[in-house]
């Protein structure tokens, strides 16, 4: 293995990327990135579910407020939103802490990243889930209502399972956006993969090695997610006739 790498002239790169060298930092960054992406995606789903219900069944004021939320978030660059939400979040926490008699609070990078990206993801998830819920035949929801099911049970037993197959492709896209958006947190100084890479690259001057390695890591996450989401979609579509024809 080592001989082969030497032969290809990659010995120096392999040494730089080894786990005891900078490779460990890169992997730590990747773990941070994935943590933030998971958290933000989950938070986005929760916001999106409530947002979609609000947009579909909410009162006039709720609907208008949600329309403003989704429009503004989707029209302003993520980088700007990240800065605004970051400062707002840390200001609020510090105000609360001051009111309770505490000092300045050091904010956990992962938590801040999840909060910031979660709010952004929520806007996109609202639109995805709204479309998916609208695609569920109304007859099914009406039937559930006529059985006297409470609203939450309808959501859990009818709407969510029935909308899954419509929502999964959009959600897969959102997950990919979430993983890539974590890179933006580098600008605010979180130690996720991109920033770790840049630090490693600028201290060793091996820019190509590290940026290509990080690119490969991101690509691996993307490709694995593609496989996982294909499985999930297949599961969500179980029992539905395939659109392509052939086996259902």
């Amino acid at each position: 293995m080592t001989g082969l790498l030497e032969l290809l002239g990659l010995g120096a790169s392999a040494e730089l990327l080894s786990l005891s060298g900078w490779g460990g930092n890169l992997l730590r960054g990747l773990v941070n990135s994935l943590q933030i992406a998971f958290g933000a995606f989950g938070m986005g789903l929760v916001i999106g579910l409530f947002g979609a219900y609000g947009k579909l069944y909410g009162g006039k004021v709720t609907r208008d407020l949600l329309a403003i939320y989704t429009t503004v978030i989707r029209a302003v660059p993520e980088l700007v939103l990240i800065l605004i939400l970051y400062y707002v979040g840390s200001d609020i926490i510090n105000k609360i802490s001051a009111a309770m008699g505490g000092g300045r609070v050091e904010i956990n990078g992962v938590a801040a990243g999840i909060w910031v990206l979660g709010v952004v993801q929520g806007a996109y998830a609202t639109e995805v889930l709204r479309g998916a819920i609208k695609a569920v035949p109304t007859g099914q929801i009406e039937a559930a209502k006529s059985y006297g099911m409470p609203a939450f049970m309808i959501m859990r037993r009818v709407t969510i399972p029935a909308m899954m197959s419509f929502a999964v492709p959009g959600l897969a896209n959102l997950w990919l956006i979430a993983t890539k958006d974590t890179a933006l947190l580098a600008v605010v100084g979180f130690n996720e993969l991109t920033l770790e890479t840049r630090q490693a690259a600028s201290s060793t001057r091996a820019y190509f090695t590290f940026f290509l390695a990080a690119g490969a890591l991101y690509l691996m996450v993307t490709l694995c997610s593609g496989v996982v989401f294909a499985r999930i979609e297949k599961w969500a579509r179980r029992g539905q006739p395939s659109l392509k024809g052939g086996t259902a």
């Binding site: 890539k180 958006d181 890179a183 580098a186 991109t194 991101y218 690509l219």
Partner: peptide, 9 residues
């Protein structure tokens, strides 16, 4: 599949 920020850098 990779973040634009990484590509730019």
């Amino acid at each position: 599949g990779t973040p634009l920020l990484l590509q730019i850098w």
